[in-house]
Design a protein around this nucleic acid. Structure first.
Lengths: 118, 118
DNA sequence: TAGATTATGTAGACTGTCTACAAGCACGGA
DNA sequence: TCCGTGCTTGTAGACAGTCTACATAATCTA
């Protein structure tokens, strides 16, 4: 059976970091699981490619926003579990409010309030 | 007097094209005016740099989404007026729905619905 | 033993935004 | 006349993050 390809949306640059941080807020997780969570929670709209995922995780770790440790996954495979650091929690808040400001700005332009008398 | 710098948000890659198209839906306009419109309408949250603006306009023109002609601006200066082409109108619709899908997907992850019994 | 699944990773292309610089023209004030 | 300022368009090059494509390894199952 051929799966109908869900209309996927490309990631806007910078948003993946935020989604990873938000996912880890629910508790430590490993890369593969983070990607699956994002895909499922977004109703298959967003698919995280491994070529985006792992560089992003390494980036966040290098910045000290997340920290890693090798453990065993649910399926009994070695997996690198990431958790939010204290700094990461702070950054999550600021990144999320940045996103909201941006989304609001987009809305202002895309759906402008009709001026009276115009 | 020092102007307090408004908290600006960086553009997420790909969104500028959409904002330009949306701006031109209201009627032909030139680059400088488009940038001002975006800045004003977004309440100064978004500022379009010239190094982003003009490449974007040229890109859209090359794709045939907008078309240009030299005219005189309100202030009596030569200015390149852009207008949406028929193709551009179609693309505006699809680009806008792509944005809305993406924004919705972000919302699903950032503000998940709490499952019952959890 | 072959293949699917789980899991991590890298190289290099690509795209679009940013900073910084440049230039032309009109206007008003010194 | 000269200078600064506002309006308008433009380019070069740096930079950042995502994408495609490829690679590896371990475990489980047919």
């Amino acid at each position: 059976m051929i799966q109908k390809p869900p209309t996927r949306v490309e990631f806007l640059q910078g948003t993946l970091d935020l989604l990873i941080l938000r996912t880890l807020l629910a508790g430590p997780s490993h890369g593969h699981a983070v990607a699956k969570h994002i895909q499922r929670t977004s109703e298959d709209l967003l698919q995280v490619e491994t070529g985006s995922l792992y560089p992003a995780l390494h980036r966040l770790e290098a910045k000290g926003w997340i920290a890693a440790s090798w453990e065993l996954s649910d399926k009994g495979k070695r997996a690198k579990y990431y958790r939010l650091t204290a700094l990461g929690r702070k950054k999550l808040v600021t990144e999320q409010s940045k996103w909201q400001a941006f989304a609001r700005a987009m809305g202002l332009i895309l759906n402008p309030v009709i001026e009276e008398g115009q």
